[in-house]
């Protein structure tokens, strides 16, 4: 992995409009290598649009986006294909193919892009499935037979199939029970530590934000209103940022973070 280039995603002066509605208005953002980065902001603040622009599903009206050193504005078909194998995306509702079993879904990128033999692909898929915490019985099921949480895990397993350098997660904990959500916290951290992954996620989960993210960007009014760790953001006094730190839920999440730190300390002492 290239150590000299420490910026994985570089977004500068991006503007996006849907008709008269301005979504991004000269937005700048940087994501560094091996960090867990989160995008937050109210509904309609353009988080999902920005994510879609980063993964080549949508083009901004102006500005430039560079992902893994590749400029997305003038990308050729072949370069895009190459780039798409270097990242993994987990969609909010899974995006699993309904006609394939979980194992086939996870094995699909390997089957498409490598020459590995089928038995090995199935073994690898089985391992990825186990790694994301799915039970082995789920491997032969179809997506329609899975619960919401299992669907997310299967989707994550598929995103990890090609060992990406960069992982995009869209609402990884939305719709999960607290126990599964805590499992996702753990998993995200484990992936980063094991593979040195860079993780970019959209989330509203305050626990996830406090527990695992290195840096967080707050989107509002078409711009990034603040970037920093949650602790740093908590100090900022911006009307778009305050709502994430005020109210009982935010304080509870913050308290859990502190408790967790103490627990970890005790564990290692």
């Amino acid at each position: 992995m290239n150590k000299t280039n420490d910026t994985v995603i570089e977004i500068s002066q991006v503007s996006t409009r849907f008709g008269d509605h301005v979504v991004h208005d000269g937005l700048d953002l940087e994501v560094r290598r091996s960090e867990i980065f989160a995008l937050i902001g109210g509904s309609g603040s353009g988080k999902s649009t920005l994510l879609r622009e980063m993964i080549l599903l949508q083009r901004p009206d102006s500005g430039s986006i560079r992902v893994l050193g590749v400029d997305l504005q003038e990308i050729t078909y072949d370069a895009a294909l190459e780039l798409r194998q270097r990242w993994g995306v987990m969609f909010q509702h899974g995006g699993l193919f309904g006609s394939l079993t979980v194992t086939e879904n996870v094995g699909l990128p390997l089957r498409e892009h490598t020459q590995l033999d089928d038995a090995l692909i199935d073994e690898l898929a089985g391992w990825k499935i186990a790694m994301t915490g799915l039970k082995p019985e789920a491997a032969n099921q179809y997506p329609s037979e899975l619960s919401g949480g299992m669907m997310k895990r299967a989707s994550l397993a598929r995103a990890l199939a090609l060992d990406p350098e960069l992982l995009f997660l869209d609402e990884p904990t939305a719709g999960l029970d607290p126990d599964s959500a805590a499992g996702v916290d753990e998993l995200v951290r484990k992936l980063r530590d094991l593979f040195g992954l860079t993780i970019v996620m959209i989330t509203h989960d305050l626990d996830l934000l406090w527990q695992v993210t290195d840096r967080v960007a707050v989107l509002a009014g078409g711009k990034v209103q603040g970037v920093g760790s949650m602790a740093e953001l908590a100090e900022m006094d911006h009307p778009a940022i305050r709502p994430f730190f005020e109210g009982p839920r935010s304080r509870a999440a913050q308290a859990r973070k502190i408790n967790n730190k103490i627990m970890i300390k005790n564990k290692y002492l």
Binding site: W127, A130, P136, E137, A139, N140
Partner: peptide
Amino acid sequence: QATSSKERPSAA
């Protein structure tokens, strides 16, 4: 992982 999944039931 390999050791923990040894007794994994094979695809039915």
